[in-house]
């Protein structure tokens, strides 16, 4: 793999060179926290951030996304025909993404890119994007990526991984897409590949928070489902969507038609399994009308059903956002440990 050294004094210039070929997204200070957004021509990504409040999943999976447009006007010969909403799938790049968020997109891809079905909106956006990562040298105290199949120097899902080496970045090109981006930015100086291993070890050592998940694969789903702890664990939960919206691996959406007069748009919006509407049937029946059922669903999906279905580990990358942001202090680490350690009475 090619490693390029990017002196920080040519960093901003390189970013500027990228603007003509890419729509750039990156972390910028928004109000009182960092968020990912499309950069305006005078913005550069703020690489000094620790983590963003929302994950960058919105770059490929916006919270509200028009899919189709239609007309209900029967004088219009094309009425009641769904047409693709205008889209911009020109090349884009996310600059300064954390390894947990990139791994998360790889996990989400398993849902949107299957043998039976390929979600065109998600996939087109994903394919159009070059992911430039920024390794984590100072993780947050809620990070537990190393026990969620990820890590501060994890490369999965990236096209380029940057490591901050003081007055320069060492940039590891991981894919052709990545090499192309580095060339487009005019970054060509040969770098030092040997910095990555020791920095990786140092960064991993800083992540002291661990969860236990090794037993989950072997557990019986129904035993866990029927475990006695769900009501107690979910007591504080207020069933808001904070965790699901902040989560980089939550992929559920809801489809809505919005009309104005005779013209309409079919949108999809992020949905949350925490709400009772999520499973409400047209008949009025709701299979998950109790709080603890919805709560259980979220954790069983992430920590058991997904594990069983794909055999690719947890559907959690240990970014810690839900832990930090939950208004009621529901902590996935506690729940994962509890599930992992649960033995059903025989």
């Amino acid at each position: 793999m090619k490693v390029i050294k990017i002196d920080k004094n040519i960093w901003a210039g390189g970013i500027d060179s990228l603007r003509s070929g890419y729509r750039l997204f990156g972390p910028v200070m928004q109000g009182d926290a960092h968020e990912y957004k499309e950069l305006t021509s005078d913005e550069t990504p703020d690489m000094a951030y620790t983590n963003t409040r929302l994950s960058p999943k919105s770059v490929v999976f916006p919270q509200s996304e028009p899919m189709f447009t239609y007309s209900l006007d029967e004088n219009n010969p094309e009425h009641h025909i769904l047409k693709d909403a205008p889209k911009d799938y020109s090349p884009r790049a996310v600059i300064g993404m954390r390894p947990c968020d990139a791994k998360a997109l790889s996990l989400v891809r398993m849902n949107f890119d299957t043998e039976e079905y390929r979600d065109p909106f998600w996939m087109n956006s994903y394919d159009a994007t070059t992911f430039v990562g920024l390794a984590c040298d100072s993780p947050c105290e809620t990070c537990f990526c190393t026990s969620a199949g990820c890590g501060p120097y994890h490369e999965e899902g990236f096209d380029v991984l940057l490591s901050d080496c003081g007055d320069a970045y060492e940039a590891k090109a991981l894919t052709e897409k990545g090499e192309k981006l580095l060339a487009a930015a005019g970054w060509t100086a040969e770098g030092d590949a040997s910095v990555f291993e020791p920095k990786k070890a140092e960064a991993e050592a800083k992540i002291v928070c661990k969860v236990e998940s090794s037993n989950l694969r072997g557990k019986n789903s129904l035993d866990l489902y029927d475990a006695p702890f769900w009501k107690e664990l979910s007591f504080a939960c207020i069933n808001c969507g904070t965790c699901t919206y902040a989560c980089p691996t939550c992929w559920c959406f809801d489809i809505q038609d919005e009309n104005k007069g005779t013209e309409g748009v079919r949108m999809r919006n992020w949905d949350s399994c925490m709400t009772s509407l999520f499973t409400l049937h047209g008949s009025g029946h709701n299979p998950r009308d109790q709080k603890h059922q919805r709560f259980r669903q979220r954790f069983m999906h992430k920590l058991k059903y997904f594990v069983d279905k794909y055999d690719k580990g947890l559907m959690c990358v240990g970014c810690g956002r839900c832990v930090q942001q939950c208004p009621a202090n529901i902590d996935i680490r506690t729940i994962c440990n509890k599930m992992n350690g649960y033995e059903a009475a025989s």
Partner: peptide, 8 residues
Amino acid sequence: VKKSGAKG
């Protein structure tokens, strides 16, 4: 007045 979404 809603500006995005449905365009009338």
